[in-house]
Design a protein around this nucleic acid. Sequence first.
DNA 1: CTTATTTATGTAATCGAATACATCAATAAT
DNA 2: ATTATTGATGTATTCGATTACATAAATAAG
Lengths: 346, 346
Amino acid sequence: MKNSNNPTAKDVAKMANVSTATVSRVFNRSPKVNEDTLKRVLKAAEELNYRPSRVAQRLRGKRKNSMIIGLIITDMENPFFSEIARGVEEIAYKNKNAVMVCNSNEDKEKEKFYLETVVDEQVSGVILVPTPYNFKLVKKIINNGCPVVFVDRKFSNNDIRVDSVTVNNKSGSFRAIERLIKLGHRRIAVIKGLKKLSTTEERFEGYKEALEAYGLPLEDELIFPSDSKEEGGRQSTKELLSLKQRPTAIFSTNNLMTLGCLEELNSRGIKIPEDIALIGFDDMPWSTSLNPPLTAVRQPGYELGISAADLLLKRISNPTRNASDIVLNPELIVRKSCGGYSKRKK
Amino acid sequence: MKNSNNPTAKDVAKMANVSTATVSRVFNRSPKVNEDTLKRVLKAAEELNYRPSRVAQRLRGKRKNSMIIGLIITDMENPFFSEIARGVEEIAYKNKNAVMVCNSNEDKEKEKFYLETVVDEQVSGVILVPTPYNFKLVKKIINNGCPVVFVDRKFSNNDIRVDSVTVNNKSGSFRAIERLIKLGHRRIAVIKGLKKLSTTEERFEGYKEALEAYGLPLEDELIFPSDSKEEGGRQSTKELLSLKQRPTAIFSTNNLMTLGCLEELNSRGIKIPEDIALIGFDDMPWSTSLNPPLTAVRQPGYELGISAADLLLKRISNPTRNASDIVLNPELIVRKSCGGYSKRKK
DNA sequence: CTTATTTATGTAATCGAATACATCAATAAT
DNA sequence: ATTATTGATGTATTCGATTACATAAATAAG
């Protein structure tokens, strides 16, 4: 209950019979402090339970590292993004940084609010899954000298130099579709994610290229624009099932839509992969236990987070270094849902 | 590139031909500002793109709300906790607060680090899933006047008055076990979570009480202490399967362990629920799509987050209000994995 | 027409630390 | 012995806003 006003450097100074400057020196392990005074100060600090005010520190030392990194993701309930967040947190913690995780929810206003908040709080840097809506603001922030790293996505507009960590979405899709084609599928439906995202575009690109590479036509009626959410996946699945001529395979371009799709198929008693094959983008820890075990393009979410945080910390300690674009490779994990010639387990 | 020093109140003041005090008044919509000056200041601010420094604000106004709430959870990759986080974020955002999400990972040092960080950052308050390891520190923080709300768990030691939002774990377990018993099961294994957690204890308590209520013996060999993680669930499942006399049902007391258990069972081709029935604590959005669809005790994670945030905001605006303990009720969602007399869908 | 009151604004102290500069003592160099 | 150098510490300013207090002008009350 005692709303004890926290002790300040002044209090410590008084107790140790030194000036606040000396206290500050002790806590910044400046070389020029007498062994004896050092001990006295430390003892006083200990006794008073003193910890320097990070707020005051930040106000004073202009470019002082706040030891906080901002992370803005678009869906904190999506396991893919929590994996990223986990990776970021891991590296941040190892470097004694905390993470301010924000959830833009693909919403323009929300992303704006969080962007402004993190820079106002003077975080050391920001890791951002950019929505397509705040390009100008992001650009301004970057130009203002705030270290930024993009993760998972980039702006199509390429006129800013920023560090980024992404996945080779196109090749991931390509391999998935290739697999289906080799299994004999000719009518492969694709459920697309949210409009205007680089990931959506690239994954669709991979789909197109694979069809083309194998001489298959790109058919409009097999393309289902959706919303990157479970409900959207379910909806698109309904639509695709009501086609006069049903597709024999589905490629769902993110985890949540795949889950929706799966639920819809299962609820109708449609056999996977016998009646219809399914491959999803994004693997999940429990993909093996789904009914049926899901063939998926695995993105290394955790590694994305790790790399992004690494990159950010590097940029923070060296703001003028060249921006780098790291592209990680996805992996096709073959399980039962796509059917197939080999009866792999795993 | 231009590391433009942000404009300060001084700059705005100069431009608008007023003092910094007036600028401050404008931004704190103090009543005593002439309409005309107000406009001038606003225009200058607009032009310079001025935003008050939150850091300076916090330093000055002692009990000024930082508009940041700290959230410390124990596993950010566990969907249950991300649901909580989502709920917290939702309410926080509605009230123009940002959330600093920290991941203690059930680790003593890590929790300590994050606790210290959030209070050092002068967050407005903290929502905490407490580990059993930092009781004294948490107590100190609370006594120091920092608003705290516990979510999901509480300290068994009850000598601090804190707001809390938890779930009635005991009744949840009870109902799950009751179900199994009514289905005819007599040997029900339980996979327990991490030691010393109130949730673990309460869920086990429910198990015991149900057995007792139906006159069944509590058998040591059916109790499997585990770690609340997937790997632990798998391990315990292995052990329980190698019992001379196999249990006919398993009650797994959290989502990740259930996933591990499921994977182990499926990989051995053990039929659920025919060979062995399974009920897990924690429902997940994709529980329906698991093989088989999972019967689960559903905790309202999102609501937990919402309530915790509500409570915290209330306490922040009124630090002396009485602490309340909110207990939400879990729900048994019956699906295929427990077998049973009714062929419910969903 | 004074004096009291209100309105609008400025001045200066403050929050808690960091730090440039000053000081003084002790030691080293000349 | 005198000056230069180094070491240890204190003094005072600064970061950017808020705010108690002061002041000046305008209005109301007497």
